[in-house]
Write a protein that binds this DNA or RNA. Structure first.
Lengths: 226, 226
DNA sequence: TCTGTTTGATTTAAATTAACACAAACCCCG
DNA sequence: CGGGGTTTGTGTTAATTTAAATCAAACAGA
């Protein structure tokens, strides 16, 4: 059973991106027992000197070398048996990053075999209670999308309405009506319209937009961004 | 600064009730440093053998001797300086109880001076970061009320629609339209209607209702009941 | 200049929400 | 036992929001 005399506290970070028109999550294949060869959500111990958001940011940076990301605390998991031979309580987070901000340099950590994106619809077997954490993260991500403008975290600075719509569709796993979607987004008043257009495609050019930073910040809930 | 070498993990429980037509919260006056004489949210250490929900339930029971309550995990606070001279990470919960289920027997804990209900609109100075936790709890409680039937946790088994409406009004701190409220509640299909009526008042008797357990359980999110 | 593909816009129906007033039931009291 | 006081219980309409559906315009490439 439990051998440790103290609690250990970790952060685990469900890192989402959109790749190949799928919602994907970054997983690490474990090189050690327990759960050797199984895939896990990136995580790490919380240091005594840092707060939880900082720990999450640090761990995220260590694994991905990406900064300035959307991070939100999800839920804390603390079953005594979730981690073999130790009492590890984990504070879970989710993060959104642009997949091309991240070059998966097949990081050579000692106890890491591989790090890779996985579609949430075809997941390998996960270590610990990470499936539960991931399911919870997906649920929360979808909830957030409904009433906060977080989708832009997954897009380039400037984007077209079609790109934005595709992002929503991929995350929510539904189709949306183009006209209604555009009307809704514009009526929210959180988009800036530019006189720039996409080019270099044999189609009609699309207008570019970005998000209005002020309204975004005033709406964000519990974000851990600088 | 920090003297401890390990993290300690506690649960803190924001216990709400409705009393005197106000939303109130149970606070304990500290008998010891740090924050001697300041008021604090009830809390306690998580034991190695129990999970977080169990710890919350136990602490709640120790302080109130009440069982079978609605408990929901809120958020985890872990600033290194939130607790003087130790690294204490706290997992916060909120609970809803009927105030008359609880006889405040002015419990004689050693380091407790007093335990009392306080209106959320006239709070004493709180210890640690407990004001922040409490504010977050209020926000979450109001959100929950909008789309889950948790209000019955604050009411007797059978209640009238007017009582239910008053509960909503007190929590949300607004007035609601009687007809629209009743129409809405009934259309949700979560109420059972009885042929019983209130009596013994010089007014028109009111029909009694209770909540349909099945639909409630199927809607609950992350509840730690039983 | 014609073809193919994507963008961008508007109207109508359906559903939901908001506003609003008065009769019925009961107890109490004279 | 009838009238006054107080609370319960109910339905309709207007306003707003959401859902559904189609076609012309812009461009690149052939």
């Amino acid at each position: 059973m439990l051998e440790s005399k103290t609690h250990e506290v970790t952060v685990d970070i469900v890192i989402f991106t959109i790749r190949k028109k799928k919602l994907e999550v970054l997983l690490i294949q474990r090189g050690q027992e327990p759960y050797k060869d199984k895939w896990a959500i990136p995580g790490g111990f919380v240091r005594l000197s840092e707060n939880l958001d900082e720990a999450a940011k640090r761990v995220l940076y260590e694994k991905t070398h990406v900064k300035d990301v959307y991070l939100e605390q999800l839920y804390t998991f603390g079953d005594p048996y979730r981690y073999p031979n130790a009492r590890v309580i984990t504070v879970s987070y989710f993060a959104l990053i642009r997949s091309d901000d991240l070059k998966l340099e097949s990081e050579q950590g000692l106890n890491i075999q591989q790090i890779n994106w996985h579609s949430i619809y075809s997941l390998p077997e996960l270590a610990f209670d990470h499936k539960e954490i991931l399911d919870y993260a997906i649920k929360r991500l979808r909830e957030r999308l409904e009433y906060t403008p977080i989708a832009h975290q997954l897009l380039p600075k400037k984007f077209t309405l079609t790109q934005l719509q595709k992002t929503y569709e991929v995350i929510l796993n539904t189709d949306l009506d183009k006209r209604n979607f555009r009307k809704k987004m514009i009526s929210l008043g959180i988009l800036n319209e530019y006189e720039e257009f996409t080019k270099a495609s044999s189609k009609r050019p699309a207008r570019l937009y970005d998000f209005n930073e002020e309204t975004i910040n005033s709406q964000s809930g519990f974000v851990a961004d600088n």
